[in-house]
Simulated scan of single mutants.
Amino acid sequence: MRILVLGGSGFVGRSIAELAVERGDDVTVFNRGHATAPAGTRTVIGDRQTPTGLDALGDSTWDAVVDTWSADAAVVGAAARALHGRAGHYTYISSRSVYVLGEDRLVPDDEPGYAGDKRRGEQAAHAFGGPLLLARAGLILGPYENIGRLPWWLNRLRRGGPTLAPGPYDLPLQYLDTRDLAAFVLDAAATGRTGPYDLVSPSGHTTMGEFLDTANTVTGGRADLRWTDPQTILDAGIQPWTQLPVWLPPGPLHAALHQGDVSHALAAGLRCRPVTDTITDTWAWLTSLPGGAPQRADRPVVGLDPQTEAGLL
């Protein structure tokens, strides 16, 4: 296929571009030129936030477009309109955050923040006027992560010593390796799938215990995991998800983010690699970087400071 990736040098977009090249596709990456695109791609530089930013694409045509934009939906709409009639399929990388917490309905159009941006982005993408896939991804992990969740845990466990491990040990987790997301998106484009798909592993694909045990082993087995009751952690004022990435205590929020029904995506071909592969490959990538993991400027830095952790332990 001839594929256009809008983005393509960061986290998810880079995974999609790399896999497409590996499969033998002709891949064009469109970005602002702030980062190097994957080998084997053709880079077109432009700023899609400006009125003429998409002009650099010229009059080229593609079999499929993948749009990874996560901010102002007007940018998505502009790209979708500009590519109308010039591509056979359009994928917008959305998020399961578009759902009202714990309910099977979407957030309102005026919802502020990330959830609202993604929901409005979905609506704007319909301006493409052709086959449209809405890839509503859950928690995404794997190489190239620029949010910091798995990298923070890997670095913390590598440091070793007594380590706060949020329980319960058998707490089920849902996440998706960025490369498995890429595979689904490319396969869906090739077969013309349309509509929304919730893309995340089945609940319990791994557990908090397996997740941290595996990460500890991969990073050298230096950490002494101290499994701690959720209420003890909450009573100490430690914030789930942000100070302890990935983890949410049992309750409504955990049910919403780690116990979703993904049967629709599985039936459509979603496949999820073992957690060991995700963690091992992410650690190999992380240790190859001279300056540590990248961090998106529009996302908060995650992780628990050592003093707070030591105080609770």
Rank of each mutant, 00 (worst) to 15 (best):
M1Y: 08
L4I: 12
L4D: 01
V5S: 01
F11H: 11
V12W: 12
G13T: 08
I16T: 10
I16V: 14
A17Y: 00
A20V: 11
A20Q: 02
E22S: 11
F30T: 01
H34T: 09
A39I: 10
T43W: 01
V44D: 02
V44K: 08
G46P: 11
Q49I: 09
T50C: 06
T52I: 05
G53C: 07
L54D: 00
D55C: 06
G58P: 04
T61K: 13
T61Q: 02
V66A: 01
V66R: 03
S70D: 14
S70L: 15
D72Q: 15
V75W: 01
A79E: 03
A80G: 10
A82M: 14
S95P: 15
S95M: 08
S97D: 15
L101A: 05
G102K: 06
G102R: 06
E103R: 14
V107R: 05
G116Q: 09
K118S: 02
Q123Y: 12
F128Y: 05
G130R: 08
P131L: 05
L133M: 14
A135S: 10
A135W: 15
L139W: 12
E145A: 08
P151H: 12
W153P: 06
R156Q: 07
G161L: 08
G161I: 01
L164W: 05
P168G: 09
Q174P: 04
L176I: 11
D177C: 09
T178S: 12
R179G: 01
A182D: 00
A183D: 14
F184M: 06
L186R: 10
A189M: 03
A189G: 07
R193E: 10
S203G: 06
T206Y: 13
T207P: 00
D213I: 04
V218L: 13
T219P: 15
G221D: 00
T228H: 05
T232K: 05
I233L: 04
I238T: 02
Q239P: 03
L248Q: 11
P249K: 14
P249I: 12
P250A: 12
G251P: 02
A255V: 12
A255C: 09
Q259S: 13
Q259R: 15
V262G: 01
S263W: 04
H264G: 05
G269I: 06
G269C: 02
R271N: 12
R271V: 13
C272F: 05
P274F: 08
P274Q: 11
D281H: 13
P290H: 04
A297V: 10
D298F: 11
P300D: 10
D305G: 00
P306F: 04
L313Y: 06
